[in-house]
Design a protein around this nucleic acid. Sequence first.
DNA 1: TTCTGTGAATTTATTCACAGCA
DNA 2: TGCTGTGAATAAATTCACAGAA
Lengths: 226, 226
Amino acid sequence: MKNPNGFHKKGTTTPIPLPTVSRLPIYLRHFTEFEKEQQLVISSKTLSEVSGIHPAQVRKDLAYLGQVGQRGIGYEVKRLAHKVRDILGLHQTWLVLLVGTGNLGMALLQYGGFVKAGFKIVAAFDVDPSKIGWELEGVKIWPLLALRQIVREKKIEIGIVAVPASQAQGVTNALVDAGIRAILNFAPCSLTVPRSIFLRNVDLSLELEHLTYFLGREVFTRTFNP
Amino acid sequence: MKNPNGFHKKGTTTPIPLPTVSRLPIYLRHFTEFEKEQQLVISSKTLSEVSGIHPAQVRKDLAYLGQVGQRGIGYEVKRLAHKVRDILGLHQTWLVLLVGTGNLGMALLQYGGFVKAGFKIVAAFDVDPSKIGWELEGVKIWPLLALRQIVREKKIEIGIVAVPASQAQGVTNALVDAGIRAILNFAPCSLTVPRSIFLRNVDLSLELEHLTYFLGREVFTRTFNP
DNA sequence: TTCTGTGAATTTATTCACAGCA
DNA sequence: TGCTGTGAATAAATTCACAGAA
C-alpha cells in the first residue's frame, strides 16, 4: 500500500490516512459518552448518527485500527476506546508549555478539556516582566530566557503559542531551539519550522471567515469538523 | 460541472470546492502581508513558498475566482485580495454574539483578530446572574432569555458558543430558535442543528490529540492547516 | 522568457455492495 | 438476522504538463 499521507517512514507502523487520524479524536469523544451511558456495544450506524460521518466511513476508519469489531454485533466501546487512545498516544500524560499569558493563554490554562484528554500544562512563559514569577492555575510563569532550561528539566514535548502574530515566529524559533517537538499555534500567522517539528495551526478568525463564505450564499448546510 | 461539496443550490453561484474555500482565508492572510510590504504582484510560486501549498494548487484555487491573474506576470495582490474578500463575504461587518463569558469567552471578546477580519461581537450572554448587566470590552452581558429579542433587534447572524459541553446543546437550540444562521462552537461536544444552520466546530483538545498521533511515531512532518 | 489557466493523469478519499461471521 | 470488514466502484482533490498570453 502506498503511504496515504506524506508522513510515514518505512518500518514504523500504521499508515493510517490523514483524514482518518483527524476523525479518531471525534470517535473517541463519542466513545467516552457511550461509556458514561453504560452503552457497552455500538454499531457503525449508531456512531454514524451521532457523529454525522457515513457508516461505511466509520467502518473503514475503525478497520485501520485492526480487527476491532464483531460481525453481527458491533464494536465493544471500552475495547475500542482503549485502542484509539493507544493509536493517538493518549495513554501517557503529555507535558505542555504555554507561551503567552494574555487572555487566550489564560483561557487555555483554565480550559478543562486538556486535562481530561491527558494533557498537562506545566509551565507558562511571558515577556511581560511584571508577570514573571507569578502562578496561574498552579502554573508558574517564566521569562522566555528560561525556555531551554525548563524544557530540558521537565522534558516537555509540546508547546502552545498564544502570543500576538508579530511575536509568534520569534517564540517559535525559541521553542524549536529549546527542543520542543510539536507546536500548537494560535497566532494568526503562518510559521516556519524545521521538517522535524510537528506544527498545527488553530486560527480563530479563519474559522469565522470560512463560515461567512456559506452565509454569503444560499446553500444547504451541515456540520463541519474538519 | 458536478457540485464538489454538497452545499450548492442550483442557480446560486460558485461551486468552489470545500478544500479551496478552506484555503482562501489562508491566501487572504498572505495577501494582507504582501500589501503591507508594498508587494504589488505575486506569483503562485511565491505564494506557494510562504503558504506551503503546492503552486499548481494555488493556481487552481485562484482560478475558481475567475480570471484573476496575468500570464507571464502573476497576481495583482490588491485586486486579488479584494476578490477573495468578495467571495468570502468579508466586505461587510458581520455581527456576532457570544454565549458564555468564562475564560474562553473573555479571550474571544478581547481577541483582536476578529475585528481585523471584519467581525464584531455586539452582545454577550451568560447564565450567571451576577454577571448580567455588566460590560466587558464595551459589550453588555445579557441573560439567555434576552437572546431572541437581541438577535432580532441587532440583526445578529453569527453565534459563538463558549459554554461547558453540558450546556452547549441547550444554548445551541436557543440560538437556533432566536434566528441565528451560523454557529461557531468551542464546546468539546457535537451539536445537532437543523440543516439550515451552518455549524463549525473548533475543539482545542482535539487539535492536541491529533498532534500526539504523530508524536507517538517516527514520522516526517510538515505544517497542517486543515 | 515568465507565469497563468486548465485539460489530463494521478493520487487520495468516500461510498457501495456484499461475503462472511456471530 | 445484524453488523463488520473489505474489495470494487465512484467521486474528489491534487499534481503534472503544456498551451498561450504578456
